[in-house]
Measured scan of single mutants.
Amino acid sequence: MPSETPQAEVGPTGCPHRSGPHSAKGSLEKGSPEDKEAKEPLWIRPDAPSRCTWQLGRPASESPHHHTAPAKSPKILPDILKKIGDTPMVRINKIGKKFGLKCELLAKCEFFNAGGSVKDRISLRMIEDAERDGTLKPGDTIIEPTSGNTGIGLALAAAVRGYRCIIVMPEKMSSEKVDVLRALGAEIVRTPTNARFDSPESHVGVAWRLKNEIPNSHILDQYRNASNPLAHYDTTADEILQQCDGKLDMLVASVGTGGTITGIARKLKEKCPGCRIIGVDPEGSILAEPEELNQTEQTTYEVEGIGYDFIPTVLDRTVVDKWFKSNDEEAFTFARMLIAQEGLLCGGSAGSTVAVAVKAAQELQEGQRCVVILPDSVRNYMTKFLSDRWMLQKGFLKEEDLTEKKPWWWHLRVQELGLSAPLTVLPTITCGHTIEILREKGFDQAPVVDEAGVILGMVTLGNMLSSLLAGKVQPSDQVGKVIYKQFKQIRLTDTLGRLSHILEMDHFALVV
């Protein structure tokens, strides 16, 4: 994948999101292997301009796509893939009243899908469409860049269908997702969380590099694949309309690839034109409109599966009536509230959605109805927002919020430890010299600072030695090549209790 991002070429006709291997024109390309080798690009942008032909009021008969309808489940399912879809609609009884809503608040519980998330729908649909058009064949390999849930859905379907599955996901995604993927037989590649989507090191860039190296491999490409919004247009939206008897006044959905909100909203605009569509985008993402909503100094966020630093091709923002931004604290607070007060075992993005819903639905009156999409299960986040310690460490809970008995030293300040200034190293000294210094002084790690004293990161003896043994660096290389740029900081005025929580999850903390 090139470091400079080429513009994806656009073909003359058809839909841009065809499933299957992508040609340089962004659509299915038939021909000899030699032709494909000559024409197939190194990668295709996940934010390529959409060429979708959908228009409100256009006859369904003019759609270029294969459409399906929700099917009634048999008493005995032939395999677990038949437990994807037909998820329950559940009334939220307490939270709406707590925040003064007059309307009825309903939750579409997508964590009841077989793999635990709304992404099971698009995973199965992308595979079925690729099999139907002859792209996927027995023994082929599926590769997908994902925040985890699409990966789980694909790995689940691949396990049943017999495909090899490789999932490329950023490091910030939970260990629970990784464990589930491994249990399903998927191979996992992790990428830096802070890598831009168009960087060769991003999950998108690495996935395309693997595709170019592995024979008979395919990126189904949830960011561009029409099967993504079509899955929701054909099934999720129809289920909502049936469950609500066609009567709903507002739908609120958090947005990642945009397939969920695009597919549902398009069908609702056709069948229930008075329904307002509300999009939820986390602070630090750029999906919301108008652009002024996205202006923030924050560039990272903890909530998973929603928000991006690019506009995915499948996201149709014209069908969203209003956007709201959400933050991590309210997302996790509301997710825990949904679990504790409503018994809905949902993930953090569901918290984002409901946090926005109780604001947006203030305009609705008694007798009206708001539906929220709860995308995934708490299963993926047992060591994250479900953990009091994690919430404390991230600053989303305060010590006084917890009532468990603490040891005698818990409320003492870090400054009472009488710490001395640490050994520091410059980023320009060599790895070999740094190892000598650390061994001589008896230290395992040291902060790396520039000549102005600005902290650049941390270097550890173990990481340097393993990097040297693996051949990633040489003793003569500058130590700046092996620094940890993500590390926890703590102030002298913070409590030892807070430091204790940090050290339970990290090997060190830097006192500043």
Rank of each mutant, 00 (worst) to 15 (best):
E4N: 12
T5G: 09
V10I: 13
G11I: 02
G11M: 04
P12K: 09
T13F: 08
G14Q: 10
G14M: 11
C15Q: 07
K25Y: 07
E29F: 13
K30A: 09
S32V: 09
S32W: 14
P33T: 08
K36Y: 09
E37Q: 13
E37M: 03
E40P: 10
A48P: 10
T53R: 04
R58P: 11
P59T: 11
A60E: 11
H67S: 15
A69H: 06
K72Y: 10
K72H: 10
S73D: 10
P74H: 07
D79S: 11
L81R: 05
K82F: 10
K83S: 10
I84Q: 07
I84Y: 09
D86F: 10
I95K: 00
K97S: 14
K98Q: 13
A107G: 12
K108P: 01
F111R: 03
F111G: 05
N113S: 10
A114W: 06
G115E: 07
G115F: 07
S117D: 05
I127V: 13
E128Y: 00
D129R: 02
K137V: 02
D140R: 06
I143W: 03
I143T: 04
S147I: 00
I152L: 03
I152T: 05
L156D: 00
A158Q: 02
A158V: 05
V160P: 04
Y163G: 00
R164V: 06
I166A: 03
I167C: 09
M169V: 06
P170L: 00
E171P: 07
E171C: 03
S175D: 08
E176G: 06
V180W: 00
L181Y: 04
A183G: 13
G185V: 03
E187S: 09
V189D: 06
N194S: 13
D198A: 06
S202V: 01
S202N: 08
L210H: 01
S217E: 06
Q222I: 01
Y223A: 00
N225T: 10
S227G: 04
S227Y: 10
N228F: 01
P229S: 06
Y233L: 03
C244F: 04
C244G: 03
G246E: 05
M250S: 00
M250Y: 04
L251E: 05
A253D: 09
V255E: 08
G259W: 00
T260E: 00
T262M: 07
R266G: 06
K269M: 07
K269R: 13
E270V: 12
